[in-house]
Design a protein around this nucleic acid. Structure first.
Lengths: 248, 248
DNA sequence: GGTTGTGAAACAGTTCACAGCC
DNA sequence: GGCTGTGAACTGTTTCACAACC
């Protein structure tokens, strides 16, 4: 392992249209002015959001291991990003580094966590308990980031009433009724393409604010719901393209 | 549903550093010159690759439904992208639309499929048969795109020897030996972060050309292996950030 | 009439390189 | 000496708008 980020060839993923494909590729607009210190800052380039998430993962690990500080080069190496990019990304959060020294890890974790919305609790529901839904229900790693899976829904009678990963599976027909009582901000869609649009419309009617969509279909939902798409087949195609291109 | 792509707010996803975070954000370099007609063309903007994958999905569906042609506006609406972007993307393939008419769907499917590497057969192995690995083994949808899951590996004695989704689970200790006999170009990593680096190194030694990495860790592997990262927790964070920003 | 393909302008993001600070 | 933060240059991508074509 060399010391510079060494030019390897990872490809900017994205959920489906996430990192790509969106006609509108502008920065994500926040509320206040550019460097708000207490609240969320924000006019953050979209790619920077994804990188912050990676920094956060590594920084929390370092904090657990008892590390106290690091510089932009060290952090960059951990996520394969140049030191200049690291500095730009972090300086967008309102400055916190010390010249000649580096960054305090605890400060970064706190600051990035706030920006990404961890530290707030998000109530999340899952719709679609097929094999992918099962995997998501069992996935431990959401909790630590502030995401609480509150309920799961499916329309398969064999699944309804069972408990997976500590969460009971409810009847999808009750979706609207349940959301009327216990509200949630985010939903994960892990169901076949043909049911996705209908369920998404229901979720929007129930005032869900964001959808993580694993269904291989494009949801068109109007601008008051955020959508992040993850299409497993698309990711494999991106990889294949990259391998194919590399023969040069 | 309006008629223009209507400005909704999907966020460019990406696998971890995929669509984002990579310092090097240049186009993916192909071999030949700009518009090769028979082979893969290529100097395709990276975001365009992801969009092509989405076009492909929709176009195959339309072909199955018996549609014959469509124009850039119609295709754009299906994936929430502006007609101008659709035309740019397609014209990069050395295109064959007809002015005043539109695009022939069968031609597009053939052409895009070749560019993305579908139509070629890719041998794929899976390492890590936890709940996510299970879901991937059961996922039907890879086959149609030319991806053949050839083998699965795990180190859990309870799993070794069982068959999931028609594929037998082999001992991870045999990974190198098996790959010596039956080669594969692509690997899917669906295992915990602490094992990922070691397995990835083994895969590289076995001349794997591309890795789809679901482990929440950054692989640093040198430039002859392509890596696409998909981090489920990161995607949820991107969504949360987007929701949080939207309050404005 | 309609729609593609593409220069040219506009925009977003990254890299460079260095002033400012420790 | 070392490292951050940032203006300025650069690179890549999208949008505009229209000529070419059916």
């Amino acid at each position: 392992m060399g010391s510079e980020p060494s030019e390897d060839n990872e490809i900017g993923l994205n959920a489906e249209m996430d990192s790509m494909s969106k006609g509108n590729s502008g920065s994500v607009e926040g509320e206040g002015e550019a460097n708000e210190h207490g609240g969320v800052p924000q006019r953050l380039p979209q790619p920077a959001v994804g990188r912050l998430s990676l920094y956060y993962r590594e920084l929390r690990r370092l904090l657990d291991e008892g590390e106290a500080s690091l510089n932009s080069q060290a952090l960059g190496r951990l996520v394969n990003v140049s030191p200049a990019v690291v500095r730009r990304d972090l300086s967008a959060l309102g400055t916190i580094g010390r010249r000649g020294v580096g960054y305090d890890i605890a400060v970064l974790v706190d600051r990035i966590g706030r920006v990404l919305g961890s530290g707030v609790h998000w109530n999340v529901i899952l719709v679609g308990v097929g094999s992918l839904g099962h995997a998501l229900l069992r996935y431990r790693g959401f909790d630590r980031l502030g995401f609480n899976l509150k309920a799961a829904f499916d329309n398969d009678p064999k699944l309804i009433g069972t408990e997976i990963g500590g969460i009971e599976v409810l009847d999808a027909a009750e979706l609207a009724a349940v959301l009327g009582v216990e509200s949630a901000e985010l939903a994960i869609l892990a169901l076949p393409a043909d049911h996705a649009a209908e369920i998404a419309a229901t979720l929007v009617a129930c005032e869900i604010k964001g959808i993580l969509n694993f269904a291989p279909t494009t949801l068109s939902l109007g601008s008051d719901v955020a959508v992040v798409n993850v299409d497993l087949a698309s990711e494999l195609q991106r990889l294949a393209f990259s391998v194919q291109s590399q023969k040069a």
